Amino acid sequence: MKLRLFYALWPRPEVRDALAAAARPLLDACRGRRVPKRNYHLTLAFLGSVAEDRLPELHAAAARVTFEPCTLRIDRHGYFKGARAAWLGCRQPSPAAAALAENLRAVLAPLGFQPDPRPFRPHLTVLRKCPGCDWEGEIQPVAWPIDGFVLARSETLPTGPVYHVVHRHP
């Protein structure tokens, strides 16, 4: 069986609630399909369709990733025109979070995975199929403590995608 997988930073419930509150003015100002707060995450590496029997290999590789706990400050918003998505992100991304993304990519490459080679720019998608978003207000900053990451599975349903945590690291 194939699973659609990605590694991500996964917010704790209280952070998820704070992110939803911070996103509210942006969501109210712009049109599109809202991402349910249960799906909030920051992608570190998208793997795509992966055979389920490769899970032990992925867990072993991710266990070799070293990183320093840090805090992301989610304090800005933006819009990806091509993807038609509104997002929340960081004015000053944490060097420790960027190093985590790079270290993860480095252990995945020998396994044949080629995650996006662009530098890690943390963004949390809050609105999809958005025809445009020119809201210029400020969001309430959110402190997001990072002490681990997850391997997650994406399940596509008629109502939209649902994400499930497959494994937590460490």
Rank of each mutant, 00 (worst) to 15 (best):
A85K: 06
K81V: 08
T125G: 07
V142K: 00
P117E: 04
V162I: 05
P93V: 09
E52W: 12
A85V: 06
L72H: 00
G160T: 11
L111R: 15
W87I: 08
G82R: 10
P115C: 10
P11C: 09
Q140F: 12
P69A: 03
R33N: 15
H77W: 08
R34F: 01
V126D: 02
E57C: 11
H167R: 13
E68K: 11
H169T: 12
L151Q: 01
F149G: 04
R54V: 02
A60T: 08
V35I: 09
G160Q: 12
E57P: 11
H164I: 11
D147W: 09
Y79I: 07
D28K: 13
C90S: 13
S49K: 15
D116R: 07
P25A: 03
R153I: 00
G89H: 01
R54T: 09
P158D: 12
W87C: 11
E57L: 12
R24F: 08
A61C: 10
V15A: 09
G148E: 06
F120S: 02
A152V: 10
R76E: 13
V126S: 04
N103H: 14
S94H: 03
L104G: 02
P95L: 13
E102M: 10
R16P: 09
R16L: 05
R91T: 13
L157K: 12
D17T: 10
P117T: 08
A60D: 12
R153A: 09
A96S: 08
A29W: 00
A22T: 03
L100E: 04
G137M: 13
H59L: 14
P145H: 14
G48S: 11
A62Q: 08
P69F: 04
A143Y: 09
P122F: 04
L127V: 05
I74H: 00
R118I: 05
A109L: 13
A85L: 05
P117H: 15
A97R: 00
P36R: 01
A29D: 00
W135V: 00
Y40N: 02
P158V: 07
K37V: 14
H59F: 11
P161H: 14
P110D: 11
P56K: 04
V65I: 13
R33E: 07
R24S: 15
R34V: 14
A101M: 10
R31I: 05
R128W: 04
G32V: 03
K129D: 14
S94C: 07
Q114T: 06
V50N: 00
D53R: 11
H77D: 04
T125A: 06
P56H: 15
H123S: 04
P36Y: 01
L3W: 06
E68I: 04
N103W: 01
D134Q: 14
G148L: 02
A45Q: 07
L88T: 01
E57K: 08
E68M: 14
E52R: 15
Y163M: 15
T156I: 12
R24T: 08
P119F: 13
R118L: 05
Y40T: 01
D53Y: 10
L27Y: 06
L151V: 06
Q114K: 09
Q92G: 09
V50D: 00
V50G: 00
V162D: 06
F120I: 08
I139V: 09
M1Y: 08
L9C: 12
W10K: 10
T71E: 10
H167N: 15
P145D: 07
T71W: 08
C30P: 03
A83N: 05
P141F: 13
